[in-house]
Design a binder for these strands. Structure first.
Lengths: 192, 192
DNA sequence: ACTGTAGGCCAACGCCTGTTGACATGTCGA
DNA sequence: TCGACATGTCAACAGGCGTTGGCCTACAGT
């Protein structure tokens, strides 16, 4: 056995560096988008040489792929009272957005980078889709309703965290949920 | 008098070139975002030399500023039946988005470029704000309601035209208006 | 204690970028 | 007809980018 003796896999001496790179990458991608986030800047943030980034992640594209790994951690909406799924989902998404900048990295990059956009599509198809499917009776309605939810969720994130429209920035969590919750509710479980 | 004899201002011989540059710039900024849209590519599209772009627009920043000039042409919502302002506004925005790629250029650029983001904020404050103000009785509510409208409008545009989430792309104009209209209605004139 | 190897740094490459200045061409007023 | 000025081309610059390969250095397994 090697190293510090963890229970699983082999702990490499370079794990700390790898993690530092990933953290710095997420921050840079989140703040600057795909093309303005340079390998050199990321390396500088992580206090290592740019060539280390290449050694550990191959190239910029793969680095982004690693940094953009993300789990929405959606709650099981079937256990929530039918009339509250909208506010519940909205609150969860706001929280998820605020405590992890991976989503921001994904969003900023997805606007100018094809691979990132594909990632975003997968994220909604693979994570939001199933959550919505558990609520909707007619399977044919699932994609549209999930899409509409994405519409409002991403629009809120875009205007609040990226464009920073003052009145949207000014909303506190409760106000945001109160305004957006009913919209989500209708998209998830409303008529039509 | 000079040139082709228009009624106002002086028509320069280079006006065609200036317009070609502007058109190419809008298309490139819309398709690629601010940093990936290069002066060289824009010049190539317009069939001229990159240095002409500099001569006529000074630098890339000013070129963008000129290309991102935009008027939402919002209808006078006070002449629309109170209950239909949501669908009316939604329909107008969808149309506006589809027949002019300036908005797309503005959105794609605003995600990674500060000046473009500021432009976007101004656009909503100066154009959407007043339109909303004409509908809402309490002036204190105007900014929030306009912000919420922006939230849904930009979210729809983002998911449909930029991220291209399949179910959102699949909506036709009528379906989009039917789904988003009520949301807009509530943001514009709903309770709370 | 010795040595192989993983971890890390440095310098350089080829390419692309925005931007500049010198030069050629054409057009229009005098 | 002539000259001034607008229009346009060409070549180059300085800097930044992703990426590569060679070279030290220090630790881990024997």
């Amino acid at each position: 056995m090697t190293g510090t003796g963890s229970t699983e896999a082999k702990a490499r001496r370079s794990d700390a560096t790898r993690a530092a790179i990933l953290t710095a990458a997420r921050e840079r991608f989140a703040a600057d988008g795909y093309e303005r986030a340079t390998i050199r800047a990321i390396a500088a943030d992580a206090n290592i040489d740019p060539s280390m980034v290449m050694r550990y992640y191959g190239n910029k594209e793969k680095l982004f792929a690693a940094a953009a790994e993300f789990d929405l951690r959606l709650p099981d909406l079937t256990e929530v009272p039918r009339g509250e799924v909208g506010t519940r989902l909205t609150g969860h998404l706001v929280d998820r957005w605020e405590d992890d900048d991976t989503l921001m990295a994904l969003l900023r990059a997805a606007v100018t980078n094809q691979a990132a956009a594909e990632r975003m599509r997968e994220l909604f198809a693979a994570q939001l889709g199933p959550a919505v499917a558990a609520l909707v009776t007619d399977p044919a309605e699932v994609p549209v309703r999930a899409g509409l939810v994405a519409t409002q969720a991403l629009g809120f994130a875009l205007t609040r965290y990226v464009l920073r429209l003052p009145p949207v920035v000014a909303l506190d969590r409760a106000e945001a949920v109160a305004w957006l919750g009913p919209t989500m509710q209708r998209y998830l479980a409303g008529e039509r």
